[in-house]
Design a binder for these strands. Structure first.
Lengths: 108, 108
DNA sequence: CATGATTTCCACAATGTGGAGGATATCGGC
DNA sequence: GCCGATATCCTCCACATTGTGGAAATCATG
């Protein structure tokens, strides 16, 4: 296994895939809230991103100051190859476990 | 949310759904190993089942001695309504996060 | 320097994981 | 029938990793 992923780690990585290179704390949070319909505290997002970076699944870079209003510089995140592999493995594991019972799961 | 589920907790609950009422430690373990293609220690399975029972997601009952060979009595597990709801929510959250990018995920 | 946006710090709770050992059950020999 | 040998399954426990949110710090704009 590339790297085992926790449940929330998967969510965060999936959000990064969806969002692409511009992703940062707030957009990751919003994406998860919209798509997974669950409450997410912003610090949970940052903590997780930080740990994913330490494990080499993700990389971050500091963006330029935004042209619009005040605020600190954004820290953008994107997926590294190890993160991609880990996510794929977690996903295929899930697919394997749910294969053939998708219908039943939705009506549980 | 009914009850938040960890990654391995989801696997165990999915195994219970697949296996039906006869499920016990060894079959849960085997199911996850086969379907998710990952190593699973038997004690991880028991610990998780135990915690799921404490949270009211699962119920256990002691089975009759097996007619075949030696061994201790089996402890069978099955899903309770709260477990079913929790699993459904975890599953739909995942589906929401992966909607439209299933193809990309498999080739990451 | 007041304000707004974003990130960091920190502490604690919940989940993940595996080694070691205990508890039955059956079987075959005596 | 009783007795250990053996097979199967379960429990205990300790520690690592992941999940979570309150509070505060940082930094850019006007």
């Amino acid at each position: 296994m590339a790297q085992p992923l926790g449940e929330f780690e998967q969510m965060v990585l999936l959000a990064l895939v969806r969002l692409g290179p511009g992703a940062y704390g707030a957009t990751v949070r919003r994406e998860i809230q919209m798509r997974a319909r669950r409450e997410v505290s912003i610090s949970a997002v940052y903590t997780t991103l930080e740990r994913l970076e330490q494990k080499g699944l993700v990389r971050s870079r500091i963006g330029e100051p935004t042209p619009e209003r005040g605020g600190r510089r954004r820290r953008h995140f994107d997926l590294l190859p190890l993160g991609a592999r880990s996510l794929r493995e977690a996903y295929t594991a899930l697919v394997g476990m749910t294969a053939g019972i998708e219908g039943r799961l939705k009506t549980l």
